[in-house]
Design a protein around this nucleic acid. Structure first.
Lengths: 347, 347
DNA sequence: GCTCAGCATGTTGACGTGAACATGCCCGAT
DNA sequence: ATCGGGCATGTTCACGTCAACATGCTGAGC
């Protein structure tokens, strides 16, 4: 009947692409539109027909082409996440929560890394972003750098910024850094320490500034004299270095580090100097990373709810994507976790 | 001249979509194809024309529509990464490197999380994957679970598996776990310890098995008696628990933990029990996470090159994506980093 | 028996892009 | 002067999908 080689599927099999709706439609003896309806789970398809289409899909190994779908609908069902690489423990946890929340909502995550935190790199990431197939963006970047960058986001692209300044251009999901720093500082003061030393995060970090400011205000509110601010770079190594200087000063009895890693460095410095924690010096961290409970001694720290931050970010973003109206900003609380690294000052 | 409201762009501005190539073409008085050529950086465009097109792009705020481009070319310029959420420190570092290497190659990363490491979830991730807009996939999942899952990957989809068994279905980029475990064990034996205790990772982890087997083989090769295998779950807490038991046994003088977090838990247990490290007990970890140098005492550990793993994975995957031929498997080396947590056994 | 609502299904076209092919011009070789 | 090669630019069409509209059938209501 048919001449050799004229069977259309044989001829078509040469190309790399998988079967399309049209192939399924032919196989199931229905129109492409019916395949589309089945593929999208619409209910106005007869049960028999649906079954026939599904069978054809299975037989051919049909996979919807998301590019065509996106082209047609204008929706990518994907969320872009812009963040520093080699990023902090907290960012990873947040990313994690974002990924899970997105997956639950049927969105995938497109990572847009910023290898080096220079303005050029950040602008570059945003340029790349504008070509990315995303419906909205979550930005997890030290806010001060963000402000300095003259970034130009595609208009109409919903944006949620995490842990940043309260800009009125975007929805912001923030952690209550001020509360955490106050709790940490008050905890140490309440134990009887005359004042609290602070190891801050880098200047350009918004979170670091907020923690530092709150620490200062809390000291002032309690009439305690504020020691000079010491600035680290979030790393345990920087905490160790600053900790060595502090260990040499017998006046220092209470230290509040702006994150757990720097607190770890401080602990090591104290051990090396032979100063007992918490008997001679109390140390508080920030983040409550998983390992903090296993430091020696176990670290008193401020717990952040990264999962909640991620969840709320996705919720706010998708709300804007799907309804075009902005969600109000959210503030995620923090809490003090008391462990063995803090105690009364030596008398 | 023009009647009110007849300007075509005014009429078109009602819709949500941004300007298309056609709009730019009209603005620059060229054909759409010329815009396409400029957009793709082809060289066969006159300098004047190119400048005119670029100006029009800027004026209109033109952004290439990646969905249309992907539909036309069949390429998404995106790599899918399947991994556990809340994943280990090492995986995050690998992800980081993957993100950077991909960005350099002009590919973006689509994260496909697997919230719970059950077979159903993994299969679910792969189902989702088949609808994802990716050109290839990097899988970072405990291999044993992978084997148990009857996953069905889309045919013709290039796959690279990280830290997994040597399957001949996919390219594998692996870390030389065996070398690392041997180095760690030999280091302790060379210091004079009679034998080395091992805290392994969970059963289902391929990396954990390989480290455990290599530890056993090394002990056997040196004629040392192998203590029973202790199994943790990678967490510092599990290391602490097992460490408490080990601390109570005066025979134990050398411990090799399968990762740094568990080693941290062991250190804590030793401190609590008043057993000096390294004077009474030596401890070695695995990974060389950033904080390991700031543990107390600083941890001797096996360094992994996560960045290299990520880089090689992307390289292998993109090679297959672009040339359709498989790269050979790669093995990334490891090295021992000696710090203060190991020393001679008490005499 | 006729009408028409309600539902399953089919037909058409457009989303924005780039490959393939077509056109037209300039300029050097003959 | 003529031809043709090379290059810039234009035209056409299909990638796979889904919204909008069209069709045709069944059965309830009068």
């Amino acid at each position: 009947m048919t001449a050799i080689g004229t069977a259309p599927d044989t001829a078509a099999s040469g190309r790399r692409r998988g079967p399309s709706m049209a192939d399924v439609a032919r196989e199931a003896h229905v129109s492409g539109q019916t395949v589309s309806r089945v593929s999208n789970g619409r209910h106005n398809v007869d049960a028999d027909t649906r079954e026939r289409v599904l069978a054809a899909m299975r037989k051919l190994g049909y996979r919807p082409n998301s590019a065509a779908r996106a082209l047609r609908t204008g929706r990518f069902h994907s969320i872009g996440v812009i963040m520093f690489t080699l990023s902090s423990f907290g960012n990873m946890r947040t990313l994690d929560a974002i990924a899970i929340a997105s997956a639950d909502a049927g969105y995938s995550i497109t990572l847009i890394p910023v290898p080096h935190p220079t303005q050029g790199e950040i602008s570059g990431a945003f340029d790349r972003l504008s070509e990315e197939a995303v419906d909205g963006v979550i930005i997890i970047i030290e806010a001060h750098l963000l402000d300095e960058s003259d970034i130009e986001l595609p208009p109409d692209l919903p944006v949620v910024v995490v842990d940043s300044t309260g800009s009125d251009r975007y929805t912001v999901v923030d952690t209550d850094q001020a509360l955490g720093a106050r709790l940490a500082t008050e905890h140490l003061l309440a134990l009887g320490h005359r004042t609290v030393w602070h190891i801050a995060g880098p200047e350009r970090s918004y979170s670091a500034s907020r923690r530092r400011e709150s620490w200062q205000q809390t000291l002032a509110a309690h009439g305690a004299e504020a020691p000079p601010v010491l600035v680290g770079d979030w790393s345990a190594e920087s905490g160790h270095e600053i900790g060595r200087a502090l260990a040499a000063d017998p006046e220092v009895t209470a230290i509040f580090a702006a994150n757990d890693q720097m607190a770890l460095g401080v602990l090591r410095a104290m051990h090396e100097a032979g100063r007992a924690v918490p008997d001679e010096v109390s140390v508080v961290g920030f983040d409550d990373m998983e390992e903090a409970a296993s430091f020696w001694p176990p670290l008193t720290t401020v717990r952040q709810f990264f999962g909640e931050v991620g969840r709320l970010s996705v919720e706010a973003l998708l709300h804007e994507v799907e309804s075009s109206e902005r969600r109000e900003n959210r503030l995620v609380t923090t809490e003090l976790v008391e462990r063995a690294s803090t105690g009364r000052p030596p008398s």
